[in-house]
């Protein structure tokens, strides 16, 4: 298992995602002899996981069962231990596309945070690219290094524990793309410019507040960035369900009205052999509440020097 390559079978040391049911998962590090407690009972790593195929069903001690999944950056994003606020898949997807990331891209990121975006970047730029990620907070940087090792992607990433606004990314002229998720992105624009290749590259800054966006756009313009573009993406999940709609009873049908007739036409269309009292309709409904904002994404192009 690695976050940049699929494996067929579960091995010692792998991180697997235990799927317990709708929106309920947990990450587990596989160690022979170890056990994991779930609400369906105990999973014994040696007998239940090691050697099993990813995606298979594992029966727990209480008779319940779970699926064991191969980790992906997307599964990691919803399962990772939170050290900070994290970026979610909808924003990550757009960042990846709008930064033109692909295998071989050299990318700078700050801050590393909980590594949600980092894993996704690494997946995309492997096997020939490199990620330079800068994290101000020492313990977080340390933890990220450790995670990257466990996830078998450490050969693709350099973690630096420094203040990006003061010290930059620690590289010059090698990056295809720079991503900023810091409180004062405008203070890091010069460093971002320096990190990008002479022939140019792309930049993205993520900020929750519009004032941050305003100051960042101004700094980008002042530093010669082009195609400055701010956007926002919201995901809406739809629940698929069947709903029952009662039909109105307009009373006994008289010869010169056609309203009930209409109603029965309808029910014929939808519930052939039932009484005229209701129709069932397959529909999709949005959740009562959803994420209404994560942050603004500002993109820009550094032109050739």
């Amino acid at each position: 298992m690695s976050f940049v390559e699929y494996s067929e079978l579960i091995q010692e040391g792998d991180v697997v995602i235990i799927f317990l049911g709708h929106d309920s998962m947990m990450p587990v590090k596989v160690q022979s002899g170890a056990q994991t407690q779930t609400r369906y009972g105990v999973i014994r790593h040696s007998s239940d996981l090691i050697g099993q195929r990813f995606g298979s069903k594992v029966t727990c001690s209480k008779g319940g069962w779970v699926y064991v999944l191969h980790p992906t950056p997307e599964l990691w994003t919803v399962n990772l231990p939170h050290r900070t606020q994290i970026l979610y898949t909808t924003d990550i997807a757009n960042i990846t596309l709008m930064l033109d990331l692909k295998p071989g891209s050299v990318v700078c990121e700050s801050g590393t945070g909980s590594g949600s975006l980092s894993h996704s970047i690494l997946r995309t730029i492997a096997p020939t690219g490199h990620l330079h990620t800068v994290e101000f907070h020492a313990q977080r940087a340390e933890k990220a290094i450790q995670e990257f090792k466990e996830h078998k992607v450490s050969h693709l990433v350099t973690v630096r524990n420094q203040d990006v606004c003061a010290e930059g990314f620690g590289i010059t002229g090698v990056a295809d793309a720079v991503f900023l998720d810091i409180p004062s992105p405008w203070e890091a624009v010069t460093h971002a410019k320096r990190a990008l290749k002479r022939k140019g590259g792309r930049l993205c800054s993520f900020s929750p507040c519009i004032e941050q966006v305003q100051r960042t756009c101004e700094a980008l313009l002042n530093h010669g960035f082009e195609e400055i573009c701010t956007l926002e993406v919201l995901l809406r999940v739809h629940d698929v369900r069947s709903v029952t709609l009662p039909l109105p009873d307009f009373g006994p049908e008289e010869d010169c009205t056609n309203s009930t007739q209409m109603a029965s036409d309808l029910s014929q269309e939808e519930v052939p052999n039932t009484g005229n009292t209701s129709v069932i309709c397959k529909t999709a409904t949005p959740p009562r509440e959803m994420a209404g904002h994560t942050g603004y994404l500002t993109f820009a192009t550094k032109p050739r020097d």
Binding site: T230, L231, E232, V233, L235, R236, V237, H238, D239, V240
Partner: peptide, 8 residues
């Protein structure tokens, strides 16, 4: 099942 909403 999702859709997304995009604004510049």
């Amino acid at each position: 099942l999702t859709d997304s909403w995009l604004r510049h």
